[in-house]
C-alpha cells in the first residue's frame, strides 16, 4: 500500500484502508473454502444481504473444521457426551442387574447381547461413557495444566530450575508409559482414582517438553523484553506476554492426547488395575470378553466404543492443529503458498 506523506489524516486513512483490505481478504477466503455453498456471493445485493452474510460468516466454523472428517469427529464426540449426560433415560436396562440369560448373542431384546453374568451389554456400554469420558477429561486437563506450568517455568527461568524439572521429565520418559503407569497403580492399589493419578504422573512430561521449547523461543521476543522494561515481573510477563502466544500447540496436544488417555485408562482397566467389577468400564468389559473368545459381542461393542471416541478426538485434534498452524491452514483452504 502506498503511503503518501502527510499529517494526521493520513494515518486514519491508512487504518480504514487496512480494515477494508482485511474484510475483502476474508471474503475471498470464505468463498474459496465454502465453494458454491454461499448464496450471497461477493458483492451481495443490498445492505441487508451484506449484513446477513457477515453474521453468517461470524457464526460459521473455521474452514479447517468444515471438512467431512472434522465434522464426523465432532459429531461423534457430541454424541458420546450426550450419551454420558442422558444415559439413565437412553439405556434400556440397569447396567448392573443380572436379569437375563447368560451369554446371549445380540437379539431383539438385548441388542448387543448379554454377558457372562446375564447383564445387558448395550446398557453397560452406554453407561461406560459416564466413566471413561469424565475421567479422560480430568486426566487431560490436569496433566496439560501441570505439564504446561512446569514447562513454562523451566523454559522461562532456565538454569537450575530448568535442569531439575526437565531431568524429572526425562526420568518419566525413560520408561514405557503403560508399564510405568502399571507399576504406579499396582503400588497404590487397583482403583480408577489410582489409575488416573498414575496416568497423570506419566503424561505431564510431554506437555512440559512442548511448553518449555515454546517459552524458550518466546522469551527473547521483543514484546516480552518491552514488557519487562515496563516493569513486569517474570510471572506477569509469563502470564501476559508469553502464555497466550504459545498456548495453541498445547491445546492441540491435549485434544490429540484425549484419545490416548481413554486408551490408557481402558488399558489399565483391561489389566485389572483400573475399574473394579462390577463397574461398566470399557477396558474392563473388553477384558471380560477376551475370556469368552467365542462370544464376540462381549468385547466387540465396548471395543467399538473406545475406537470411535479415540478416532473422533484424533480427527478433531488434526483439524485444530491445521487451523492453528498458518502453513497448513492455507493448504487446507486450497490457497497456494
Amino acid at each position: 500500500m502506498a503511503k503518501p506523506p502527510g499529517g494526521a489524516s493520513d494515518s486514519r486513512l491508512e487504518l480504514e484502508a487496512d480494515a477494508a483490505a482485511t474484510a475483502v481478504y476474508d471474503e475471498v477466503q470464505d468463498d474459496r473454502a465454502g465453494g458454491s455453498g454461499g448464496s450471497a456471493g461477493p458483492g451481495g445485493s443490498g445492505a441487508s444481504g451484506v449484513s446477513f452474510s457477515a453474521l453468517r460468516n461470524r457464526l460459521r466454523l473455521p474452514p479447517t473444521f468444515r471438512r467431512p472428517m472434522a465434522i464426523i469427529g465432532m459429531s461423534i464426540i457430541v454424541l458420546w457426551f450426550l450419551v454420558a449426560i442422558f444415559v439413565p433415560w437412553i439405556a434400556p436396562y440397569d447396567p448392573l442387574a443380572q436379569q437375563f440369560d447368560r451369554l446371549q448373542a445380540p437379539n431383539a431384546v438385548n441388542w448387543f447381547g448379554t454377558d457372562s453374568l446375564g447383564r445387558d451389554v448395550l446398557s453397560r456400554t452406554l453407561y461406560g461413557a459416564r466413566i471413561s469420558l469424565p475421567l479422560a477429561l480430568i486426566l487431560v486437563v490436569a496433566s496439560a495444566i501441570i505439564g504446561s506450568v512446569l514447562g513454562a517455568v523451566a523454559g522461562y527461568f532456565g538454569r537450575a530450575v530448568d535442569e531439575i524439572i526437565m531431568r524429572f521429565s526425562d526420568l518419566v520418559f525413560a520408561f514405557p508409559t503403560i508399564i510405568l503407569a502399571m507399576i504406579v497403580t499396582a503400588a497404590l492399589g487397583p482403583s480408577l482414582t489410582n489409575a488416573v493419578i498414575a496416568l497423570l504422573l506419566v503424561s505431564w512430561p510431554s506437555y512440559a517438553r512442548v511448553m518449555r521449547s515454546m517459552v524458550l523461543g518466546a522469551r527473547s521476543r521483543e514484546y516480552v523484553v518491552a514488557g519487562r522494561l515496563l516493569g513486569f515481573s517474570p510471572f506477569t510477563s509469563l502470564r501476559r506476554d508469553i502464555l497466550p502466544n504459545v498456548a495453541a500447540p498445547v491445546l492441540v496436544l491435549a485434544t490429540l492426547d484425549f484419545g490416548n488417555a481413554i486408551l490408557l485408562l481402558s488399558g489399565l482397566s483391561f489389566l485389572g488395575l483400573g475399574a473394579t467389577p462390577p463397574t461398566p468400564e470399557w477396558g474392563a468389559m473388553v477384558a471380560d470378553g477376551v475370556q469368552q473368545f467365542s462370544d464376540w459381542w462381549l468385547a466387540a461393542f465396548p471395543g467399538l466404543a473406545i475406537f470411535t471416541v479415540v478416532v473422533a478426538f484424533n480427527l478433531v485434534g488434526d483439524a485444530l492443529r491445521d487451523s492453528l498452524d498458518p502453513r497448513t491452514a492455507g493448504a487446507v483452504q486450497g490457497v497456494k503458498i
Partner: peptide, 16 residues
Amino acid sequence: IQMVFQNPYSSLNPRR
C-alpha cells in the same frame, strides 16, 4: 529509561 525496538512486527504482543 524506555526503549523502542527495531522490528515493529515483533515488538507488540500479537494477542493483546
